[in-house]
């Protein structure tokens, strides 16, 4: 990558500059990016000031389910842990599950989409049929069933999210592959003797990648929502702290009937802000790359 950057041709550099400039003109996109950077930094630095002493239910010393006070800014949970520490700590696993699930989704979707777009015969048709079948299935019951059979934990939630959300990427990549392969340079490459693999990997994939990256920011947003939902329904690892698991224990340990709003609000607002951050960033990039989209949602 560094070698490539050194050899950036002026037009490409100009395009990058233009991209940055028009992105800077979108306040919503900037706000989204800022929020994501803040949360990312907080998640990375969390181990510096939160440790076992704040997270272990046996070692903490705070009052049980107490409202916000001077020493506990956002109050405490039923074990006496500080809510603000839990929310910060929870961002680590919530964000990483969201991002890993997105990487899996994108890999699976791009592979299927590329193959379906490149091989026009029965392979392409078959793959599109499989995609359509998965689109028709309601995603939450499918994800629940998969995660329940695989056993509780982050890994099975991640797999369940990937299996239920790759279809959108696959359709997008297939459409783009068809568009790219219709262009003359692909014919030229084929005339020069390029094989299927070379055409797909060296000519089509680089042209598809920007679009996939944009759509993946929106995928992260929905993956984080799905993680919270699946964990809330009881499919997460009971010992780990995520925003979903906080809400799940708040619900099952009677924070709702106790009216403990300080326990319920922070994790939900954290999810809301991060999901909004990813959505706004994704939309801003989309608008910059595709000006015709401006004005549409």
């Amino acid at each position: 990558m560094t070698v490539e950057e050194g050899r950036l041709s002026p037009p490409r550099l100009n395009a990058a500059r233009r991209f940055v400039r028009s992105y800077l003109e979108r306040p919503a996109g900037l706000a989204g990016l800022g929020v994501l950077a803040a949360f990312g930094l907080l998640a990375l630095c969390a181990p510096l000031f939160i440790g076992d002493a704040q997270l272990n239910v046996i070692k903490v010393t705070g009052p049980q389910l107490a409202g916000p006070s001077g020493s506990y800014l956002l109050g405490t949970d039923q074990a006496g842990r500080s809510i603000i520490d839990l929310v910060i700590w929870g961002s680590r696993e919530s964000l990483s599950i969201g991002i890993i699930a997105t990487v899996l989704t994108v890999l699976l979707g791009t592979t299927v989409g590329l193959l379906a777009g490149h091989y026009e015969g029965w392979v392409g048709k078959g793959l599109m049929h499989v995609t359509d079948w998965f689109i028709a299935l309601p995603s939450l019951p499918l994800a629940i069933s998969l995660a329940a059979v695989l056993g509780r934990g982050a890994a099975s939630i991640t797999i369940a999210i990937a299996v239920t959300s790759w279809t959108a990427t696959a359709r997008l990549v297939r459409a783009q592959t068809l568009a790219v392969e219709a262009r003359p340079f692909v014919d030229r490459a084929r005339a020069l003797g390029a094989g299927n693999t070379q055409i797909m990997l060296r000519h089509v994939l680089p042209n598809v990648t920007p679009l996939v990256l944009v759509s993946s920011t929106l995928t992260v947003a929905s993956a984080i929502l799905s993680e919270a939902t699946l964990t809330f329904l009881g499919l997460g690892d009971p010992t780990s702290v995520t925003w979903g698991s906080m809400l799940q224990s708040a619900f099952s340990d009677g924070a709702v009937t106790a009216g403990a709003w300080w326990y319920l609000l922070p994790p939900g607002i954290a999810i809301l802000i991060v999901v909004l951050g990813f959505t706004l960033t994704g939309r801003a990039v989309e608008h910059v790359l595709n000006p015709r989209m401006v004005g549409r949602s």
Binding site: A221, L225, A228, T229, F232, G244, L247, A250, F251, V256, T257, A258, G259, W261, L264, L265, P267, G268, I271, L272, V275, L276, T279, S297
Partner: peptide, 28 residues
Amino acid sequence: ASSTSLTLWSVPTFWLGMILLVVFSVGI
């Protein structure tokens, strides 16, 4: 209308349910 719907889309359904439960059923 657009920003309200974007915000509501970004909220987990079950969380909104719990908040409404605390506000309108338990009473706050």
